[in-house]
């Protein structure tokens, strides 16, 4: 060890760092003791109340349903979209909702538009639609890994170039949130989170107390979201539900080619939440992707169910279950 290095190990004996200076420890401690606020217990409760309070938004509540189907992340996968609309019909769903992210990843973006219109799918704007409609250069997922960025840019450009301006305009007019009533429960539908269109709500990083506060602030009995690509459901201690409905555009990074959607129904005053697997003709989709010259990495995901890109966004727990 050099002198300079061993000096560094001992210079702080009895001293504190204050900005750029070394000062006697006591001086620093005295300074910090007198700084900052120290409120009474009552004042603290009032501060917390003010901080957490939110005014309810003006979104109208859509008619009371007894059963709905909700999905997210179409990612140009028109074959899975057809399959989920069939499934909704078979379930007898009174309404079908899509939480956004229509493009990216898959082939021929224009094919999903007529399906959404004919199927009367009530669609929210995702970050993909927001980016396409405003002419943004990227999908606004916020990747920093150069490899993730490469693939994200590639699929965004492909979608942007193959989308008509009419379709993009329609995307730009989609609402950012909706409220629906299923039985007794009023549910808020968003793309990422109620706070931010591109906030990721993963199961392992959305703790109970965070979600309870979020639902209090939004005055709702449940929250439905997508954006992460992975489906999950958490029933909160308050009895309310948070459901990430997953995506129908690509598999859930679980080694299965199938995709996932959600069905919600009124059950004796309670809310029934089911996350359901969906089989569709993934072989044909892979063939179309190949014909469109989309990257082999994306095609592999459609075939085998493991994500090969955009892995950076996964929290430790979800990444540990991932093959790549």
């Amino acid at each position: 060890m050099s002198d300079a290095e061993s000096g560094k190990l001992t210079t702080h004996r009895g001293m504190a760092t204050w900005g750029e200076r070394l000062v006697p420890l006591e001086k620093f401690r005295q300074a910090t003791t007198s700084l900052g606020r120290r409120l009474s217990d009552d004042e603290r409760r009032a501060e917390q109340r003010d901080f957490l309070g939110r005014e309810r938004d003006a979104t109208p509540v859509e008619s009371p349903y007894s059963r709905v189907v909700v999905f997210g992340g179409v990612y140009n996968n028109h074959l899975a979209l057809e399959a989920v609309l069939d499934a909704a019909h078979k379930h007898g769903a009174e309404a079908v909702y899509c939480l956004g992210d229509l493009g990216g990843f898959g082939p021929s973006p224009e094919k999903v538009w007529p399906l959404l219109l004919e199927g009367d799918v009530r669609t929210l704007q995702g970050n993909y639609e927001a980016s396409l409609a405003t002419g943004r250069e990227d999908c606004n997922c916020g990747y920093t890994d150069p490899r993730d960025n490469h693939f994200a840019t590639l699929s965004y450009r492909y979608t942007s170039e193959h989308c008509s301006s009419d379709f993009k305009r329609w995307m730009g007019d989609l609402p950012l949130r909706r409220r629906i009533r299923v039985g007794q429960r009023e549910l808020l539908l968003v793309h990422g989170s109620p706070r931010q269109i591109n906030e990721f709500l993963f199961h392992s990083t959305s703790p109970v107390s965070f979600l309870e506060v979020l639902l209090n602030q939004e005055s709702c009995d449940g929250l439905l979201c997508t954006h992460t690509g992975l489906h999950w459901h958490r029933r909160l201690p308050s009895g309310r539900d948070v459901v990430n409905v997953g995506v129908i555009g690509r598999p859930a990074n679980d080694g299965q080619p199938g995709v996932w959607y959600a069905m919600l129904e009124a059950r004796d005053g309670d809310l029934g939440v089911e996350l359901l697997p969906l089989e569709y003709d993934h072989v044909s989709l892979a063939r179309e992707m190949l014909q469109q010259g989309l990257p082999q990495e994306f095609i592999d995901t459609i075939r085998h169910g493991w994500w090969t890109t955009c892995l950076e966004i996964l929290p430790a727990r979800e990444r540990a279950k991932s093959r790549y």
Binding site: A16, T17, W18, G19, F28, A31, T32, L35, G36, R37, R38, L39, E43, R44, R45, E47, Q48, D50, F51
Partner: peptide
Amino acid sequence: VNEPRGKMGQALADTLE
């Protein structure tokens, strides 16, 4: 943290401003 003026309070509720 080594800047005393970065200190905002004692409890979290003191530091919401």
